[in-house]
Simulated assay, not measured.
Amino acid sequence: MPATVNEYPFSQVDVFAPGPKPGNPVAVVHGADGLSDEQMQSFANWTNLSETTFLLKPTLPEADYRLRIFTPASELPFAGHPTLGSAHAWLENGGQPQRPGELVQECGVGLVKISQTAGEQFFEAPPLRRSGPVEPEVLEQAIASLGITPEQVLDSNWVDNGPGWLGIRLASARQVLDLTPDFVAMGKLNVGVIGAYGDGGPADFEVRGFVPGLAVPEDPVTGSLNAGLAQWLIGSGVAEGDYTVSQGTVLGRDGRLTITTEGDSIWVGGTSRTVIRGSVSL
C-alpha cells in the first residue's frame, strides 16, 4: 500500500534582505508535529537550501512555538536566519504571541527571544556553547583551508552557539572577499571570517561563513555566526556595541544584518519577506 501523504502549509522566506537583491532563503513547514525525524531530514535534503525548518507545538509554557532546524545533511540546535524567517512565517500564518511585540522560540539550545520593530526582527544571541582560543592544530587547518597565511590572521576564537563556529578576524573586508577556500581541506570545520570596511563601505564589516561539513559550502547570510562573532568582538572591545554587517556579496546576495546591544544582551536583526506561499505534500 502507498504511504499516507499529508498536506502542510508552507512558506519560503527571504531573510536579511532589505532591498530588491536576495538574502538567504529558509523553507518553513507549518504544523509539522505529525512528521517523523526521517521525513524532516528527507525534505530538508530535497529543498537543498542551507536550512529548512519545521514549526511545532511548544513543550515549554514560556514558548510560543517549537522549531526544528535541518540542513540538507543534519539537524542543528540553533541557527539565526531560520529563527527570524520562521518567526516571520509563524506570525504571518496567524500565530499569536503570548507577549505583545516579543516571541519566544523553543529549539535545541533552549529558549530564544525574538523582538519586533516596524521593519526588522531581532533575536537575542544565545549563550556560547564554546568560546576561547582555538587549538593550534585546528587553527592551522582552518587557515590553510582559507588559502591565507598565519600572518594575515589578526585574531581567532571559538564562537560556537550550536553549529560549531570557529571565528577568524582579518584586517579588511577586501581580504574577506578575496578568500578562495579549499572545502576539502576545510573538512568538517565550520569557519566564519570577518573583516572591517573603511569609511564609505556598505556596512561596518564583511562576513563569510563556510560549512562544507553540513553540505553548505558557503552560507549566504548567517545569523548564528554573526551572533557568535558579535559576542566575541564586542566582548573583546574590537567592535562597538552597535554595528552593521554585509554578507553574501561573493554569492551575488545583498545580506544586511544589524547588531545592537541592550544591557548584557546582544541582538541580531534584519528584514524578512515571504516569497513563496502554499502547501507541501509530505
Rank of each mutant, 00 (worst) to 15 (best):
D155G: 09
I234W: 01
G252M: 10
N6W: 04
I276M: 15
L166G: 03
Q105S: 01
Y197A: 08
R99Y: 01
T260I: 15
T271D: 11
F54T: 12
E218V: 07
T71S: 15
G19S: 14
P20F: 12
V15L: 06
V184L: 11
P58G: 06
G110I: 04
R130A: 05
A230C: 06
V245A: 01
A142V: 08
T274C: 13
T4W: 03
G101D: 08
I168C: 02
S131T: 12
P126Y: 00
P72H: 13
L111M: 14
G198R: 07
E120T: 06
E75V: 13
L229W: 00
L214Q: 15
V28Q: 07
S281A: 13
A142H: 11
V275H: 10
T149A: 14
L177F: 08
L103W: 01
V153E: 02
L170M: 04
I148R: 12
F54M: 09
S11F: 14
G132A: 08
R277N: 14
Q41E: 11
D178S: 15
E102S: 06
G187T: 09
G34Q: 12
I69L: 12
W158M: 12
G195F: 09
I114M: 02
R273C: 07
R174V: 08
T4A: 14
I234M: 00
D37A: 15
L60Y: 03
T83H: 03
D64C: 11
P2M: 05
T71H: 13
Q116Y: 00
W165T: 04
W90N: 04
L56K: 14
S145E: 07
P202D: 11
E262Q: 15
I168T: 03
T249E: 06
V109G: 02
P58M: 05
W267D: 08
N157D: 12
P136W: 08
S36P: 11
W232I: 00
E240A: 06
I276A: 08
R99L: 04
I143K: 07
A142D: 14
P82S: 10
E240C: 00
P150L: 10
G198I: 07
L179N: 03
L177V: 04
L229Y: 01
V221N: 02
A185R: 15
K113G: 05
E120V: 01
P77Q: 12
M1G: 13
Q175F: 01
D178R: 13
L170S: 02
Q41P: 07
V275Y: 14
R130P: 05
I114Y: 06
A44Y: 09
Q98F: 00
V275L: 15
E218A: 08
G101R: 03
D264A: 15
W232C: 00
S236P: 00
V159Y: 05
F123Y: 04
P58E: 12
S246I: 00
S50Q: 10
N93K: 00
G200D: 05
R277P: 05
L60T: 09
G19V: 11
G248N: 01
R66P: 09
G34Y: 09
N93S: 15
G23I: 14
V216Q: 04
A87Y: 03
E106V: 01
V134E: 05
G270S: 09
F70N: 13
P25M: 09
L91W: 02
V275M: 11
I259N: 13
A118E: 15
D199V: 12
V191C: 10
